[in-house]
Simulated assay, not measured.
Amino acid sequence: MIQVGLMGGTFDPIHYGHLLAAESAREACGLDEVWFIPSSTPPLKPNAPYAEPQERLEMVYRAIDFQPYFRAMDIELERGGVSYTADTVRELKDLYPGRAFSIIVGADRINDLPQWHQIRELSELATFIALERPGVIMNDKDLPDFLRGKVRRCEMPQIGISSTLIRERRSQGRSIRFLTPDKVYQFIRRNGLYES
Rank of each mutant, 00 (worst) to 15 (best):
E195R: 15
Q54K: 10
A28H: 12
F70D: 00
G98C: 00
R71L: 06
S171H: 12
C154Y: 02
H117R: 15
F66G: 02
R62G: 08
A130Q: 10
R170V: 12
P13Y: 01
T180Y: 15
R169Q: 15
S196G: 10
L131M: 10
P13R: 03
C29N: 08
I129A: 04
M59P: 07
R190M: 09
R169T: 10
R133D: 03
A63C: 01
F128I: 07
Q115P: 03
P43N: 05
K45Y: 01
S175N: 15
I104D: 11
E121G: 05
L131I: 08
V136M: 01
R174K: 15
R169I: 08
G81R: 07
D94N: 07
N139P: 09
A21Q: 03
D145E: 12
G106F: 02
R62L: 14
S39P: 03
T88V: 10
V136S: 03
Q158C: 08
E55K: 13
S171F: 07
P53H: 09
D65A: 12
A86R: 03
R170Y: 04
A51W: 03
K93A: 14
R152V: 12
Q186H: 12
D94S: 13
I119F: 04
D74C: 05
G30A: 04
A21D: 00
I137T: 08
R189P: 11
M73V: 12
P97L: 04
N139T: 10
E52P: 01
F128Y: 00
L6F: 04
G149E: 11
L131D: 00
H117N: 13
D112F: 02
G8I: 01
M1Q: 14
D140Y: 02
Y194M: 12
D32H: 08
L95F: 01
Y61A: 05
Q3D: 06
F187L: 15
S24V: 03
K141H: 15
V151G: 02
E132M: 15
M59R: 12
A63S: 09
T88C: 03
A86I: 14
I75P: 06
H117M: 04
R167K: 07
S102C: 01
L143E: 03
D108F: 01
D108W: 11
L131W: 02
P68L: 00
L44F: 09
L131V: 08
E155P: 14
L19I: 09
L95K: 13
Q115W: 10
G192D: 13
G80R: 13
E168R: 14
L44T: 12
S123A: 15
S196L: 05
N111W: 06
S163W: 01
L147D: 13
I176T: 08
W116I: 05
H18W: 04
R148H: 09
P68G: 04
P13V: 06
P38N: 07
Q115F: 03
E76M: 05
R26Q: 06
L57C: 05
L77T: 11
R189G: 12
